[in-house]
Design a binder for these strands. Sequence first.
RNA 1: CGGGGCGUGGCGCAGCCUGGUAGCGCGCCUGCCUUGGGAGCAGGAGGCCGGAGGUUCGAAUCCUCUCGCCCCGACCA
Length: 576
Amino acid sequence: MRFSQLLLPTLKEDPAEAEVISHKLMLRGGMIRKLTAGVYSYLPLGLAAIRKVEQIVREEMNRAGAQEVLLPMVQPADLWEESGRWEKYGPELLRFKDRHQRESCLGPTHEEVITDLVRKNIHSYRQLPVNLYQIQTKFRDEIRPRFGLMRGREFIMKDGYSFDVDEAGADVTYQKMHDAYQRIFTRCGLAFRAVEADTGTIGGSFSHEFMVLAATGEDVVVICQHCDYAANLEKATAQAEKDSRSEAPKEAEKIATPGRKTVSEVCEFLQIPHENLVKTMIYLADGQPVAVLLRGDHEVQPVKLQNLLGAQEVELADDGKVTQLAGAPAGYLGPVGLKIPLVMDQAVAGLVNFVTGANEADCHLVNVNSGRDFTPQHTGDIRMVNEDDRCPRCGGKLALTRGIEVGHIFKLGKNYSKALNATFLDDQGQSRHFVMGCFGIGVSRTVAAAIEQSHDRDGMIFPLPIAPFQVILLNLTPKDAEITAEAERLYRALTAAGIEVLLDDRDERPGSKFKDADLIGIPIRLMVGKRFKNDGLLELRTRSDGQTSEATPAAAEAVIREMVAAADKATTSDHD
RNA sequence: CGGGGCGUGGCGCAGCCUGGUAGCGCGCCUGCCUUGGGAGCAGGAGGCCGGAGGUUCGAAUCCUCUCGCCCCGACCA
């Protein structure tokens, strides 16, 4: 492709609308343009990167035995009513009526449609397992779209759905998809981790998120520094806390703690470590109040709490509600004598003679003991892991790092097959529900994540496998016939060798060409300029490390072919 | 949905407080000149100042309403 003919409107300055780096660079690099909030047009360069990711996804899905389909984007409400999600899904589902006043929606995901397709067309265990995927534009009417392609309303997604005869089969499929995802993100040239994730309200047994590691990620990932344990913050657990219950329980006593409300204030006043104080927080679980007991140095993980209680949603009660329920202001709450259900974090179970609020302003209780002074209705892991915690598997040090979720796989079980009554006949002639799995990849987000992960002050630094072009060839002096002839010859030769070359043939000064080449992050830069005229040498430079070398045209061509071949070799798949 | 900010040539911004009919940098077009890290000179094109209503002799500027966009939040006693 010739730069002079490519719609590649680069910008010198950061557009005011962009905050995060990938958004700024994609706008500056002429890859995307915004149409309206969370909705973007993909320009040729942006689309080229997206197509690269798509192709890798396609190859690996096919290799794993999945089949590509393309499902409708506009969907009838009936199906969603059948699954129960027409009510449940909420405002993210964009609903509208067609000309016949039929309720419809834009597909944010395709469990309903795929299950409908399969129930109508697959009737025997002999046809199973089957794994279907598509790569398509999704629409989710996000509360707050932001950060360009990172959280758009309209975005490109690969979504796949598997159908197995039983749990064992579904486990095999799940593992295949896990492996395929590992290959996909490895091939994309990204640093990532597969982390254990919460399965949420869908239930099911297992779920992994694939996180691209980047300081600007929205999600927090917990990674063991010694073994391969990795989980997201909603799911992560820590090695069990020390148990101090060998100590003899002492008699509980009420003491005055005037004006000391926070954990730090009380602990400082009483000269005790934070872990010896148990804080009490009132939550509303689906509207019902519960008191949550937690060590002073720990924090609640709401999703864990939600799961322990089997609640749809939990929220912290406001101060007015707290005072009304506990008879004391926030800061002085405790489990002793509270009339609402108690939920205790398991770390508290290992404590003896701890401090709590007294449910009375300016008072706390010391030497409180669980089982003697109060009895929790629920005990479990409801706290957030922190940097002081140790790995639950190996005891190694845990690190909290940030990531961008680019893939998510989980087992759906029979949720949708039951709701939509999707069945097949097994080898006994019995009707059974499909056991399903669901596997997503944010394709457009993956491109943004790659940029978040890899850039410098001059611009993007694309990994070779997903770069829009592999080589940018700069003709530094288009007015010079000899230099131009060589640039054109190289362009033809490299292109003929199957290498994707962007020829900068614009009548611009060299500085502008360097700046644009750096900005759009093409991995290999080849330059023809006056040095070619003087001593027949070209200059070769790699974007990632800035390494520059001079070479004869023949040598440069050979090096480039080798670099591209090496990347291809690492990413080429065998097709079944 | 709550809070904050912003809408002025393609992009980045000034002008608004203290009304008098729009300006700067970049980009774009023409010419000269220049050609290894976003050159220089000269000439030029391009704006219903987000929209509607109001106040006024007069509104980008003041008032009201409205639309759009961006950021933060919607979790810790």
